[in-house]
Design a protein around this nucleic acid. Sequence first.
DNA 1: AATGAATGAGGATTCATTCAT
DNA 2: AATGAATGAATCCTCATTCAT
Lengths: 229, 229, 229, 229
Amino acid sequence: MATKRRVSRLSPERRRADIMTAAREVFSEKGFNEAVMSEIAERAGVVEGSIYRYFKNKRDLLFCVSESWFEEMISTDEPTLAAVTGTWNRLRFIIHRHLMAIKTHPDLSRLVFQHLRPDPEYRKTKLFALNKAYTNRVVELVREGVENGEIRPDVSPSLVRDMIFGAIEHRTWAYLRNEGGYDPDTLADQLTDLVSFGLRKKDQTDEIARAVEMLEGAIARLQPAAGAS
Amino acid sequence: MATKRRVSRLSPERRRADIMTAAREVFSEKGFNEAVMSEIAERAGVVEGSIYRYFKNKRDLLFCVSESWFEEMISTDEPTLAAVTGTWNRLRFIIHRHLMAIKTHPDLSRLVFQHLRPDPEYRKTKLFALNKAYTNRVVELVREGVENGEIRPDVSPSLVRDMIFGAIEHRTWAYLRNEGGYDPDTLADQLTDLVSFGLRKKDQTDEIARAVEMLEGAIARLQPAAGAS
Amino acid sequence: MATKRRVSRLSPERRRADIMTAAREVFSEKGFNEAVMSEIAERAGVVEGSIYRYFKNKRDLLFCVSESWFEEMISTDEPTLAAVTGTWNRLRFIIHRHLMAIKTHPDLSRLVFQHLRPDPEYRKTKLFALNKAYTNRVVELVREGVENGEIRPDVSPSLVRDMIFGAIEHRTWAYLRNEGGYDPDTLADQLTDLVSFGLRKKDQTDEIARAVEMLEGAIARLQPAAGAS
Amino acid sequence: MATKRRVSRLSPERRRADIMTAAREVFSEKGFNEAVMSEIAERAGVVEGSIYRYFKNKRDLLFCVSESWFEEMISTDEPTLAAVTGTWNRLRFIIHRHLMAIKTHPDLSRLVFQHLRPDPEYRKTKLFALNKAYTNRVVELVREGVENGEIRPDVSPSLVRDMIFGAIEHRTWAYLRNEGGYDPDTLADQLTDLVSFGLRKKDQTDEIARAVEMLEGAIARLQPAAGAS
DNA sequence: AATGAATGAGGATTCATTCAT
DNA sequence: AATGAATGAATCCTCATTCAT
């Protein structure tokens, strides 16, 4: 009627990005089931129906949001990881980054663990591929370690991967339920140590090796600061 | 009207058990959200309302079902575990049993992982306590191993626990999504080995020599930066 | 089994009284719909089924509770009212008592107004009879007042009754919704005065003269219309 | 499946009006608790869910229905009331209209008395405001009467209001329970008389005044008919 | 491309009342 | 007389998705 129709026509990319930003917020705040499409639409400044032009459905939207988060993480990590040398340093770095990612985005982490990964179609999704790329850094690390003789050749690289990410996930569940925190630095050290040396008590040589290992870690942590000066 | 009121009066214990059995079936087959109370009631041979005399609500019912499953597992394991001697044997036994439990009851496992553990109230539930008892066997094992000198004293027992159950869980997600199986025997062996020996190659004299060299170089490089501050 | 069944066997009268006391509490606290039989049973120290030995159903229970309240009120008022002399004093007394009753038992009052009086069967209930007796004191008072010449003979006693109790009820709705109080003394005075003297200013000779003039004019204007029909 | 999705898109105003019309019918026929949303939806030619786009919930719907009824009454009365002159005529008019409203819409009246007015939130509702406007006409009338000397200045206008509407309500409860009728004309006369003159027997002047008053009423009732010819 | 009204399936839960024990 | 387990009907509301405009 007399009411003017204010149709803001943004570029599709921008529109899509707005929706994803809004969705990430709402999913993070409310969780998947409690998040409602109309609120996402409202925050994105679009109408409910418009979301369906860009995303197949609510689940698809969640997948896309999570994918973009993974892509962010991977692209952030990549350059830094490239600068870290030494098998054990790199391993600790990956562990530390993952602990940080969960600490910074517990809500998104929980969404992935609870709603995406259990999805029967999960394996066919892009998120699965991204996650694979993300976790495969450990697999490759192990392979390289085997090649250069630092890692014994009879371990399953994928089992190492599952062990590391499984341990982290298990360890952080309390935090994901908002029940207390954890210190990524300490935990990364402990976990790296445990994975690399195992439980068994060993002879002297190993003790020395471990001491060296700790020194290496300390230096690695100092290097960026020193380089920045 | 013409409907006869057939009131069968069973012992409360029996009635409760019937409902739980039916619920376990339906939850396993359908998952939590898709399970409907009326079907559980029907299979249990009761009327919907009767379920609510024994269980507060659907979620409570799921918790109770899961608890009884855990109790079963714990009471089944206990005598056998008591008969297994040797730290590493016992560790392998626990790992193997857990792998078997998931393999035998993937649906219940998924329910716990997906619906119960993420519950904000989880920590206050009996299921949490049971799960703690269940996983604590690893913690105790580590402590004993430390005491008798088989395990090095500087590992965090709870981190070992998280590592083991995390690794198992991560490893079995594909199976939980019905995407292929795994061999509990092999996997238990691999995991026990990995946890106990770690990744490192045993003889590392050369490695150490090289590492020491690197450290010396690194320290030399750091000294100017430290001096500049 | 080994559990001893503690069946306390009280006199039926006592049992009935306990239930009514509990019911009055629960109804008062929760209102009719929100009151649940199991809570009444619990507070009365009986089992749900037992209530139905003494009362036909929930509604019947509410009626009985209300009846006993009315009986209390009537028997409390009676002796005092007998001691009050003079039509206007007695009228004021009745009004004041009713205002006090509502002030003391707003919850019971609301139950009667909201759930009992609108009942299609209300007129057949004992509560109706009691209420009639309760309010009829006004009717009788008016009749007596007419007889002794204090009240003009052309008023409908029942209309006076409805006016008084209606006015009180209307006036107290805010209080019944827990929205503020009222002062029974002042209000009783005002109401008695208003009912007895009405709205009109006393000396109206001039008014009458003016009215008569208007009437003459009106009739003059009407005559043509009447003639036209 | 094979069900065709027939989407009829009406103007929101029309749709809302349809729902309210249907709701008024169903609420009137069944009462609040017995009215079911699905029947309202069906009669309105919409789907249940659609009702919730226009009304927050069942209670809100009832409030809106009642509000529209009040608005109708007020807007119907207004022009006629403006045409009626003289304090006592106007008073009788208001009383008469209210008696007629209840007589015409006993079911809606009962809904208001039983479900809306007792609502703890009632005072915050639009219905309360409307009702206040509706009944305030009496308050204003009294104030005007005091100003022009027809009404004694020491009465509480709001008490007069409560007395009138309370009396009407009390008087009509039997009818609201479907137990017999009443004659609005007679009752309006009686009530006006009682309110204006009170109970007390007075001297001759008042008798004359009353006779004049009755004549005025008779003429007032004749005027519309005469004017319409 | 955008709108946003309409769809419509879907299910947990409550609780007064009964009646076998 | 007392118990209390069993009954089972009954319904409001949500919200992802569609599609006419």
